[in-house]
Design a protein around this nucleic acid. Structure first.
Length: 583
RNA sequence: UGGGGUAUGGUGUAAUUGGCAACACUGCAGAUUCUGGUCCUGCCUUUCCUGGUUCGAGUCCGGGUACCCCAACCA
């Protein structure tokens, strides 16, 4: 018999515009048919979900088209950067499932950049400016007004060179001198109005120590680093579009310096990094910028970068998202050049979609009320076997203890049910999931408050799950826990940190209107109920064996995970996302 | 009154590049179910405006409108 050959499903999803371009470049043999990308975070904070989108692009496109993606720390500003962030960045990328080709640093190129800058000076393309930042800003003009030349613009190259070297001596005050590219003070593109190449910081760098006192700016670093590293496709977000022409110019200059440019100004070989831009990720009810996230952690609004309410990768991980659910979400929103505001519901849907296949089912009662089976023998217990995941029988089973007195969810019982309610009420049969069918016979309520204190029922001994007698149709199945065989649990529930759809704009506007900044402009939009802690929950004893971050589905409730704070003595769970509404 | 971008249902993204506007999410309705979940079925809602070219325009051209980015010694 011949067997059917199952070819993998033909990839039907269309390529995004950057993938299309990469494919085309490869087909046309650009850059010698090479593909190399880079993910270039500045190690000044933790990675967030927006970075995950960039990571999925930079690493993803390299993976997909047989290229390589380097991880490059963009460490040109030692004032803000820290090695703590480097380690966190590496951890988060790996957790997402990506592997870089090489780990490099912009600071690896500091010497090259310096030598190149000296060459620029000698070429008459750069000069040292000794004006104050205010003077320089004033001369820059406005978008509608041309700038004016610095009085230092045409100083002799030798003088600039001497001063440039002076800038790195440690004897020049920060702000006293900068190195500028001599381009065009009247350019309609503000970035061309003699951009700053180097500034004095007089500060040690965590990697290069005391070697440098003057450090290159982003614009004078990025394209050159890409070029020196062999990057072919330098993919970034849309706000860098206005930088692209400057990026190309500096690449042209450095190629000239390296002798890769012909006399007519053309590239001798097609060896040139090119910048491509896609839309960054915006999520409603979410604040994304690192600067603001830093404020939230410093002000104690959240409990650190990995607070499960944070949009950081480590926060989302602690919240209970799998890497796959994040990647599914990113895949679902796509890459375009449109400044979109994505609905957080798309992210939750991706989590449910992934966690449904991944999460271990467990019973937890979040708001318990006692159910007593009056015809079940006192002192009797039964060990029942329940599936870990009905979507994946291969995940096996675990046992749960059944007895006469159980906890059930308070809202699974109604003394006076409305028409649509079909869980438990007096006179109704209900199935206890994985156990028996019971018949509700009555309840006891607090005479003053009316609060239900105990519910009574009888069980059908012939209706045990898995037996013939269980195959009866019963509308309404609820989960339960044996009072004497469960554990107390702390369950942390989360809502969005923000009460408005677009906190970034709201904060910006509030800052403008009220003349306050930072946390004071953020407070009015913070959700006071973003964290609520339930210490009165119960969970199966099975929970004690589960390691931190285990993906769980609390039966009929939602997805949860084991918080790293959890101990066998004090179990702590985070709510990841609820099950789809049960009406 | 500068330069650079962008507009497709409630949200995001497609459309073999000029040929029946589709997919996912959301919402609603139903079926199945030992999870009011999942799976399954169905429904709702779309090309910013306005002229033009064309047998035919989301796509091309003209004119508008709206929104985003750019005037850090940040990246």
């Amino acid at each position: 018999m011949e067997e059917t050959i199952h070819t993998p499903q033909e990839e039907t999803k269309s390529l995004n515009f950057i993938e299309q371009r990469v494919k085309k470049d490869l087909e046309e043999g650009r850059n010698g048919g090479r593909l190399q990308t880079r993910f270039p975070p500045e190690p000044n904070g933790y990675l967030h979900i927006g970075h995950a989108k960039a990571i999925a692009m930079d690493f993803g496109v390299a993976e997909r088209f047989g290229g390589v993606c380097n991880l490059r720390m963009d460490d040109t500003n030692p004032q803000k950067e820290d090695t703590e962030y480097v380690e966190a960045i590496k951890r988060d990328i790996q957790w997402l499932g990506f592997q870089w080709g090489k780990l490099v640093y912009a600071s690896d190129y500091f010497q090259d950049l310096w030598d190149f800058a000296e060459w620029c000076i000698l070429q008459g393309r750069a000069y040292v400016d000794e004006q104050t930042s205010e003077e320089i800003a004033a001369q820059k003009g406005t978008p509608t007004q041309a700038g004016t030349d610095s009085p230092y613009r045409n100083r002799p190259a030798e003088e600039s060179l001497r001063l440039f070297r002076e800038m790195n001596s440690g004897n020049v005050e920060p702000g006293a001198m900068i190195l500028r590219a001599k381009i065009d003070m009247a350019s309609p593109n503000m970035h061309f109005r003699d951009p700053i190449m180097y500034r004095v910081l007089n500060m040690p760098h965590w990697r290069t120590g005391n070697k440098w006192n003057a450090y290159p700016m982003y614009d004078f670093t990025h394209g050159q680093s890409d070029y020196l590293e062999g990057v072919t496709h330098s993919i970034c977000t849309l706000e860098f579009v206005p930088h692209r022409d400057l990026y190309d110019l500096f690449v042209t200059w450095i190629k000239e310096w390296r002798g890769e440019t012909a006399a007519n100004g053309q590239d001798i070989e097609d060896n040139r990094p090119r910048q491509f831009e896609f839309n960054k990720l915006n999520l409603n009810y979410t604040l994304m910028s690192k600067r603001n996230l830093l404020i939230l952690t410093k002000e104690g609004v959240v409990n650190g970068w990995d607070d499960p309410r944070m949009p950081t990768i480590c926060g989302i991980r602690r919240r209970g998202y799998s890497p796959e659910s994040i990647l599914k979400f990113i895949d679902s929103i796509g890459y375009t050049t449109f400044d979109a505001l994505n609905d957080i519901k798309l992210m939750e849907a991706a989590a449910r979609n992934d966690l449904n296949e991944r999460a271990t089912r467990i019973s937890a009662v979040l708001d318990p009320v006692k159910l007593i089976i009056t015809n079940y023998p006192e002192g009797k217990t039964e060990e029942l076997e329940v599936q870990n995941n009905p979507e994946r029988p291969e995940d096996g089973t675990h046992t749960i203890t059944f007895s006469r007195e159980l906890w059930i969810e308070r809202d699974d019982f109604k003394a006076e049910p409305d028409k649509k309610f079909f869980r438990m009420y007096p006179g109704k049969e209900t199935r206890l999931k994985g156990a028996y069918i019971v018949d509700c016979t009555g309840f006891k309520a607090n005479p003053e408050t009316g609060e239900v204190e105990e519910i009574y029922c009888t069980y059908d001994p012939d209706s045990l799950a898995g037996t013939e007698g269980a195959n009866r149709k019963v509308k309404g199945t609820i989960h339960w826990l044996s009072c004497a065989h469960c554990l107390p649990a702390e369950v942390r529930n989360y809502e969005c940190l923000w009460t408005c759809e677009n906190p970034r704009d709201a904060i910006k506007q509030y800052e403008k209107e009220h003349g306050v900044r930072g946390i004071d402009a953020m407070r009015p939009f913070l959700n006071p109920d973003s964290l609520s802690i339930n210490t009165g929950a119960f969970i199966e004893e099975f929970a004690r064996t589960l390691p931190a971050l285990t993906y769980l589905q609390f039966q009929r409730t939602g997805y949860f995970n084991v918080d790293p704070d959890s101990t066998p003595e004090h179990l702590v769970f985070n709510s990841t996302v609820s099950l789809k509404d049960r009406k």
